[in-house]
Simulated assay, not measured.
Amino acid sequence: MRKRPPSIDGLGASTLQLPPGAWPTVLDCLCERFPAVARLQWLERMARGRVVDSNGRWLTPETPYRVGLEVHYYREASDEPPIPFHEVVLHADADLLVADKPHFLPVTPAGAHVHETLLGRLIRRTGNHSLVPLHRIDRDTAGLVLFSGNPQSRACYQALFRERRIEKGYEAIAPALPNVEFPCIRSSRMVAGEPFFRMQEIEGPANSKTRIDVVARYDGYWRYALTPITGCKHQLRVHMAALGAPIANDGMYPTLFHRAAGDYSAPLQLLAKRLAFIDPLRGVERRFFSDFLLQT
């Protein structure tokens, strides 16, 4: 069985199976397929062995184009700025790593964030190229993320999420809801909205459910405990906004707000605070709590 190329500096390779076309070289195909990447950048990547085939052989500017050829390449971002916040490793053994992620740091590469990700930082920090996130939280959200560190035991931990044998607890700061009786359950049908990266509620059978309670009351804003019973994208943010209490500093719900690059003011007041489960390998109860604090 063919193996994927190893990660480099914490970044795994992306894969493209060359489509039908009349390009003379692989380079020509890549340049047309990815117009945002300059030809010179592809040439530089090839010169450094960052574009390879399924056998790990370096592809060169002269490599002839062939339909179906698997091309593995490493994404790069020029002048990627560092994100000035740091993660904390709360637990690490041969099978499991638990990290406490700060706001603004993505879990995995996305968009302009290539090396400045939680996954990349942890691989560089531990030297373990087998690390894989077992779940995700938004870049805007701070808090706990679990990683598998061993492919042999990964399925055991993945089953915790698939079979809902893991307790997840969040905290949020949002406007007061004095006319709502707590605790309450918000259930709704959520689907992709506009733009494509936002979610919306529509009529129909519910596919999302959140338990909401109040932890503390402040002047105008309350601290809420949010327990996702299901795991839809942006579920907590959508449900709080739908109740009339959008999470403080939410730039996506109920309305979209563009944050300038490098603007780290006013982080979203949502925190993945707690994770609890029975370790499937050791049979012991695991409880982890984020040390990050929301702004009140």
Rank of each mutant, 00 (worst) to 15 (best):
Lys3Pro: 03
Ser7Cys: 11
Leu11His: 05
Gly12Ala: 13
Ser14Asp: 12
Gln17Gly: 02
Leu18Asn: 03
Ala22Gln: 12
Asp28Pro: 00
Leu30Asn: 03
Phe34Gln: 08
Gln41Ser: 13
Trp42Phe: 10
Arg48Tyr: 08
Gly49Phe: 11
Val52Lys: 06
Pro61Ala: 05
Pro64Leu: 03
Tyr65Leu: 01
Leu69Tyr: 03
Val71Ala: 10
His72Thr: 08
Tyr73Asn: 01
Tyr74Phe: 13
Glu76Val: 14
Glu80Ile: 04
Pro81Tyr: 06
Pro84Gln: 08
His86Ala: 15
Ala92Ile: 14
Asp93Tyr: 05
Asp95Phe: 06
Asp95Ile: 04
Pro102Ala: 01
Pro102Met: 00
Phe104Arg: 04
Pro106Lys: 12
Pro109Asn: 02
Gly111Gln: 05
His115Ile: 02
Glu116Ser: 06
Leu119Gly: 11
Leu119Gln: 15
Ser130Pro: 09
Leu131Ser: 08
Val132Asp: 00
Arg136Cys: 01
Asp138Leu: 06
Arg139Gly: 03
Asp140Leu: 11
Gly143Ala: 04
Leu144Pro: 01
Leu146Arg: 04
Ser148His: 09
Pro151Trp: 04
Ser153Phe: 05
Arg154Leu: 15
Arg154Asp: 14
Tyr157Glu: 07
Tyr157Asp: 08
Gln158Pro: 00
Phe161Lys: 02
Arg164Tyr: 03
Arg164Glu: 13
Arg165Ala: 03
Lys168Ala: 01
Gly169Gln: 10
Glu171Asn: 03
Ala172Gly: 11
Ile173Glu: 13
Asn179Thr: 14
Val180Trp: 11
Glu181Phe: 07
Cys184Arg: 10
Cys184Leu: 14
Ile185Glu: 07
Arg186Ala: 09
Ser187Ala: 11
Arg189Met: 04
Ala192Asn: 10
Gly193Ala: 02
Glu194Thr: 13
Pro195Val: 00
Phe196Trp: 12
Arg198Trp: 01
Gln200Trp: 00
Glu201Trp: 00
Pro205Leu: 08
Thr210Val: 11
Val215Asn: 06
Tyr221Cys: 10
Tyr221Asp: 14
Trp222Glu: 14
Ala225Glu: 13
Leu226Val: 05
Ile229Met: 15
Lys233Asp: 09
His234Phe: 03
Val238Gly: 00
His239Asn: 08
His239Asp: 05
Leu243Tyr: 07
Gly244Phe: 05
Ala245Ser: 12
Pro246Gln: 00
Asp250Ile: 07
His258Val: 13
Ala261Ile: 15
Tyr264Ile: 08
Ala266Thr: 10
Leu268Asn: 10
Leu270Met: 07
Leu271Ser: 09
Leu275Asn: 06
Ala276His: 09
Phe277Asn: 02
Leu281Ala: 12
Arg282Ser: 15
Gly283Val: 09
Glu285Met: 04
Phe288Trp: 10
Asp291Arg: 15
